[in-house]
Design a protein around this nucleic acid. Structure first.
Length: 571
DNA sequence: CGCCTTTGACCCGCGC
DNA sequence: GCGCGGGTCAAAGGCG
């Protein structure tokens, strides 16, 4: 057997090489076998090729060398030629062990040169024969292991593909269901009623929103003493709206994989006994949110979900926009509950709480930029548990898009994608200067910078890029304009009010029918409206308030009518 | 009168 | 353990 260098087995050719890296190969040695390594020893140290100057090559004469210790076994050599790492040894005489290996169909490529006497060769050959048989068995075992790993790898690949397919089909299913829902609502004229609203009834769309949401309160499973407007008369049409609303809730809930909960649930809130507002899904054990169907039933997914949730709850979306007022009109109703001087900024930081839902956990912080006082930094945290007014819904996709971008890579769920307009996701992800992520902050935060004029053009390019992606990935039955229109419809089923908000919707965003106009028109309309409209900032900020989980939260909320009047934020 | 804002106090987490 | 900073509470006053 070789000494000084290790035995290298080429897994492909099953050739044996001898290397000079010191390695102990216990499984191949038989320390109790006295005859091993006594003979047929190749003196590599005298070989001009193999002994190429490596100083650590032990020899039988050296103190480091021990019988039964092979210096290295390299199963995957990169250099099959004679080199410093691997030296093929030429032998003049073929030993019996080679014959045995050759008889087994194994080309060892090992021609051993011996300088020992021929009398002992037979005995030593038998010894080495046993040793090589074991080596061969080990080799076969390793090969089998390798094959097994390859098979396992292939199996995992297949599994991954299946998961991807399921996700894609789920997403398509979701869009389809929402489309059907919109079609039904359009046919029944519900949308028109909702859009126009009865302003004499005190609030038009927002009021309708609240009435829609009230149905949740009226459900037997929900017992609440709140809801000052629960005595509102219920018209048949209103019941129809509620029915559709519930249908849509079921539809969207069925598409959820992970329920998001952005509200804080730290010990302070969890142990609060001072009347601090708890999130509805926590306060009401039997709430719809807790009954959300989940497609992922594996315990691993649940475990991962529970691990990522705390981080998700802390996710924040920050918006930088120029504004002269104390806040920006984002379409939601807020109540100021605190103000503090923050370190590093001479401008005070104001704390607001959403009052559109009785227990809406959404908070926002407003602070002027220290460097540029004209820039207002609004940071949103939490997700609304109630329907949002159109002003906030107009670009609601940006909210979940930003948040999902924030969470991408850490959350194994498609939920964020479910809730977000892919268009917006692309816009955010493709415009680094527009949306920036901050992992160094105490909370993961995504910042949308609306102070840069060129962000609008970036957004437009992102939209175009989104279409290109869709064109190649969508099934035949679903065109990109449909998806875009659907996305907008889904985000805002009260399309008509966009015009009242000064936002022109693209033509395909009609609620009554699905148009398939040229995409350039659609994109152009949307982009022009967004970039030209002075309320875009407000609408975008409003969208932020619908942070992650907006879709299912909207449909599972337990809030009641706003009990407070609008504050200055809404002016 | 009811709701909102203001503002000081309090709680909690974190770093030293 | 202490101080600091962020976040929230809640009483008091203001406003429509």
């Amino acid at each position: 057997m070789a000494k000084g260098g290790g035995l290298t087995i080429d897994p492909d050719s099953t050739s044996f090489f001898i290397t000079n890296k010191p390695t102990v190969l216990n499984s191949y040695t038989e320390p109790n076998h006295p005859s091993r390594f006594k003979n047929d020893i190749i003196d590599i140290s005298t070989d001009p090729i193999c002994n190429s100057g490596d100083e650590d090559v032990p020899s039988p004469a050296s103190a480091n060398w021990k019988p039964g210790i092979v210096n290295e076994m390299d199963l995957f050599p990169t250099d099959r030629n004679c080199s410093k790492e691997s030296h093929r040894v030429n032998v003049k005489k073929e030993s019996a062990q080679d014959a045995v290996i050759r008889s087994l169909g194994l080309n060892t490529g090992l021609n051993l040169t011996t300088n020992t006497s021929s009398e002992k060769s037979n005995e030593d050959d038998r010894t080495n024969n046993t040793s090589n048989k074991k080596s061969f068995n080990e080799l076969v075992a390793l090969q089998a292991e390798l094959d097994r790993m390859s098979v396992e790898n292939e199996r995992l690949k297949v599994l991954l593909n299946q998961v991807k397919d399921n996700y894609n089909s789920l997403q398509i299913h979701f869009a389809t269901q929402m489309q059907h829902q919109q079609t039904r609502m359009a046919k029944t004229g519900i949308v028109d009623e909702v859009i126009n609203g009865d302003k004499s009834n005190g609030g038009g769309l927002t009021r309708q929103f609240m009435d829609l949401h009230r149905v949740e309160k009226d459900e037997p499973s929900h017992t609440s003493s709140e809801g000052g407007l629960r005595n509102c008369s219920r018209s048949p049409m209103k019941d129809k709206v509620e029915l559709e609303y519930k249908k849509q809730k079921i539809c969207s809930s069925s598409s959820e994989i992970i329920q998001l909960d952005l509200d804080k649930s730290d010990s302070r809130n969890g142990n609060s006994t001072t009347g601090r507002e708890d999130s509805p899904d926590q306060a009401i054990p039997g709430s719809v949110l807790n009954k959300t169907p989940r497609f992922t039933t594996s315990r691993d997914a649940d475990h991962q979900h529970s691990e990522t949730l705390p981080m998700i709850r802390k996710a924040r979306v920050s918006v930088r926009a120029r504004s002269d007022g104390t806040t920006i009109n984002d379409g939601c109703q807020w109540r100021k509950y605190g103000q503090k001087m923050a370190k590093g900024n001479p401008c005070p930081r104001a704390y607001y709480r959403c009052t559109m839902g009785a227990s809406c956990p959404v908070r926002k912080q407003v602070q002027r930029c220290a460097e540029d006082r004209s820039i207002l930094i609004t940071t949103y945290e939490g997700n609304h548990n109630h329907p949002l007014p159109p002003a906030a819904m107009a670009t609601a996709s940006y909210t979940s898009a930003a948040a999902s971008m924030l969470l991408s890579g850490s959350m194994p769920s498609a939920d964020a994608l479910m809730n977000s307009n892919i268009l917006a996701r692309t816009a955010l992800s493709s415009s680094p200067s527009f949306a920036t992520l901050s992992a160094s902050a105490p909370f993961p935060t995504v910042t949308l910078d609306l102070t840069q004029p060129h962000n609008a053009s970036q957004f437009q390019r992102a939209v175009q890029g989104q279409y290109n992606m869709f064109s190649s990935s969508l099934p035949h039955f679903m065109s990109a304009p449909q998806v875009f229109g659907q996305a907008l419809q889904n985000q805002s089923k009260y399309v008509g009010l966009h015009s009242s908000q000064g936002i022109e919707l693209p033509p395909f965003a009609s609620s009554n029918q699905i148009h398939t106009p040229s995409l350039s028109d659609a994109i152009g309309s949307a982009t022009a409206a967004i970039t030209a409209d002075p309320n875009f900032t407000a609408a975008l900020v409003a969208a932020i308030t619908s942070i992650i989980g907006n879709v299912h939260s909207n449909h599972s909320g337990n809030s009641t009518q706003p009990t407070t009047r609008n504050n200055n934020d809404n002016n």
